[in-house]
Design a protein around this nucleic acid. Structure first.
Length: 634
DNA sequence: ATAGGGTTAG
């Protein structure tokens, strides 16, 4: 238009601004705002309210409010947009104040006003306020329409309000809303979240139609209940009918597999998706190229997570720094990344930055923050944030937070304090909390509390071999071999075996799996030779094998263990033999790294001049020049 | 003519 020397007027501008809001094109939108100011078109009420909405969508509530304050006349639309904006930000008090003001000034809130509030509260996770808004709407005599219903259902699901959900379901039937695809999907989602997989399936079957949204909701719901095979079946049926699978279908099923340990299936589905997507041709390809997809909040968050999981924490951070927009997930992923690497100082730095940016922290943020403090021994900082969480941030402590704080105190040797923390918890401690205490008792050789924790764990999860092993380790470290045997007997009677240790290493695009005492590896004799040579060098350097950890491997497998060593050691040496001098090694282990292996790998990193990354179930260990990033605090 | 609200995944 401009290059044709045509001047935009007050009719076309709102559409342009709406498009900017839809694309979250912040900079272009601001340019259009500038244009409307210089041209005088900003005085038009339509232009003004579309601009308010634009700023609300781009999460710039302050800019939206400033605009609102300068308006000549304010109508229902502008009031509602502002109220919804505060709801989106999770500023509940402000949202309600502005919303009440609409009625106080004599305006009638319409369905868009109500629905905007419900949707806004939903987006900021204020799900209880979303449901209350819905109920208030009814109390004031407003009938909910399809939009209100599909907005409120996910909130009801998050809260697990099954009876409210069923009431809404009844209302849906009465009003004939079953034809609305969004509502059907939302109902399936709600029953899934309310632990009712049967009602979920019933709704899906009752509606008869195979809508893609409903299928996707069903797949997600089945996945939530661990019904992976059923989810795959629904997906395959959908796929087989040559129906249009959308990106949500693929994402749901891939997530379902990767969240339930089917990593290979997840990767295969991903490949299959790419092959299918190729058929959609150039249009999709051009779209993803033109749009810098790595800066999308979701893609970006996943990339940060992936690089952090692969040990490339600096790369993860540089992606994070370049994100144009960051949402809660994005911040939490970065916090979690630092927690996994035990970088508590950086985690705290990110947390403070998050506060300055106006992003509210949630329960997940604090889990990472506390876990980071616990990993690094920042005991006082961890205590401070645990208190501040409820007091200053309004986040109620959950089980996982107690598990973190117990582990924080326990690692620091404050076992009695950790125990009294458990005793004073406002709810029943679960296996994670007791497990944190037991691990700490193992670390500090505390038999008395170790027995208490183990006793609880044997009730809570009698089939988990890890707890028996930990208790027997405590006994072994105290020389109480009778008790060691007693625990071993219990394990044998229950038919439990120690989970086999297993490590992975990726070499030349192939993942190699190594088991403790594995003989199937073709290069095993070379690996053992190398290990022998390294042991000799280590002894020359004054290294003493840690018998504390050898004691955990009594019984038949003992000989193999001593001969072949633990899987992480094998994987590291296997990596040494198959990579060029000086290149880094990355190993993943299915259990926590063993203390003896930890010492050996420290030595190897210096002697062989290699950077070695080992990820265990708990965190990353980054070995370099004979030291580990964990500072031996673990 | 022009502005404001919805489901499923990460």
């Amino acid at each position: 238009m401009l290059s044709n020397k045509l001047f935009p007027d007050a009719h076309v501008l709102p559409s342009i601004i709406k498009a900017c809001a839809g694309l979250l094109a912040v900079n272009i939108g601001k340019q259009v705002h500038g244009f409307s100011l210089t041209s005088g078109l900003s005085l038009d009420p339509f232009v003004e309210s579309s601009l308010i909405h634009f700023y609300v969508k781009c999460d710039e509530i302050i800019a939206a409010h400033k605009l609102f304050d300068n308006m000549a006349e304010r109508d229902v639309v502008s009031w509602s947009a502002l109220a919804a904006g505060y709801a989106r930000k999770g500023e509940v008090a402000n949202a309600k104040k502005v919303f009440d003001q609409v009625q106080y000034l004599g305006f009638e809130p319409n369905s868009v006003s109500w629905n905007g509030m419900i949707a806004g509260f939903n987006q900021s996770g204020c799900v209880l306020d979303a449901v209350l808004m819905f109920q208030q709407m009814h109390l004031q005599g407003f009938k909910s329409d399809g939009t209100s219903i599909s907005s409120v259902l996910p909130a009801i699901g998050d809260l697990g309000y099954l009876s409210t959900g069923s009431q809404v379901h009844g209302y849906v039937m009465k009003m004939g809303f079953y034809v609305d695809k969004c509502i059907v999907s939302a109902l399936i989602d709600m029953y899934g979240k309310c632990q009712c997989p049967l009602d979920m399936t019933r709704v899906f079957e009752e509606t008869g139609q195979v809508d893609i949204g409903a299928c996707n909701a069903l797949i997600a719901g089945l996945s939530r209940h661990g019904l992976v095979d059923e989810a795959l079946k629904v997906f395959r049926e959908l796929h087989g009918r040559e129906r249009e699978l959308n990106v949500v279908s693929w994402t749901s099923i891939i997530a379902c597999c990767s969240q339930h340990g089917k990593d290979i299936e997840a990767l295969e589905l991903f490949r299959e998706m790419q092959a299918t997507a190729l058929m959609h041709g150039k249009a999709a390809h051009c779209f993803s190229l033109k749009r810098d997809i790595t800066s999308d909040v979701y893609v970006g968050s996943a990339l940060i997570d992936m690089y952090a999981n692969c040990g490339k924490i600096q790369l993860a951070r540089s992606f994070f720094d370049r994100m144009p927009i960051r949402n809660l997930v994005c911040w939490n992923v970065m916090l979690g990344a630092y927690a996994m690497h035990g970088n508590a100082k950086e985690a705290i730095e990110i947390f403070l930055w998050m506060q300055r940016s106006g992003q509210k922290a949630d329960a997940v943020s604090f889990t990472s923050l506390l876990s980071a403090c616990s990993q690094s021994g920042l005991t006082e900082e961890g205590r401070y944030y645990f208190e501040s969480m409820t007091k200053d941030h309004g986040v109620e402590a959950r089980l996982e937070h107690y598990a973190c704080i117990v582990s924080l105190l326990g690692r620091a040797g404050k076992l009695e304090e950790a125990y009294s923390m458990i005793k004073n918890m406002p709810f029943e401690p679960d296996s994670c909390v007791w497990g944190a205490l037991l691990s700490s008792c193992r670390l500090h050789h505390n038999m008395r509390l170790g027995e208490v924790a183990a006793g609880k764990l044997f009730e809570l999860e009698p089939e988990n071999p890890g707890n028996y092993i930990l208790l027997s380790n405590i006994y072994a470290s105290k020389g109480k071999f009778k008790e060691v045997d007693r625990v071993r007997d219990i394990m044998r009677d229950k038919g439990l075996r120690k989970n086999p240790g297993c490590s992975w290493i990726e070499l030349k695009n192939k993942v190699h799996m190594l088991l403790a005492g594995d003989k199937s590896l073709p290069q095993m004799s070379q690996v053992l030779d190398k290990l022998d040579k390294l042991s000799m060098e280590m002894k020359k350097a004054g290294y003493m094998p840690n018998t504390d950890y050898v004691l955990q491997d009594v019984e038949e497998q003992e000989k193999e263990h001593i001969l072949c060593g633990h899987s992480e050691k094998l994987a590291v040496v296997f990596g040494l033999l198959n990579t060029s001098q000086g290149s880094p090694l990355r190993v993943t282990k299915n259990l926590r790294i063993c203390g003896d292996c930890h010492a050996v790998i420290k030595f190897i990193s210096r002697f062989e001049k290699r950077e070695i990354f080992v990820r265990d179930t708990n965190r990353y260990h980054h070995f370099k020049d004979g030291d580990c990033s964990c500072g031996d605090y673990w």
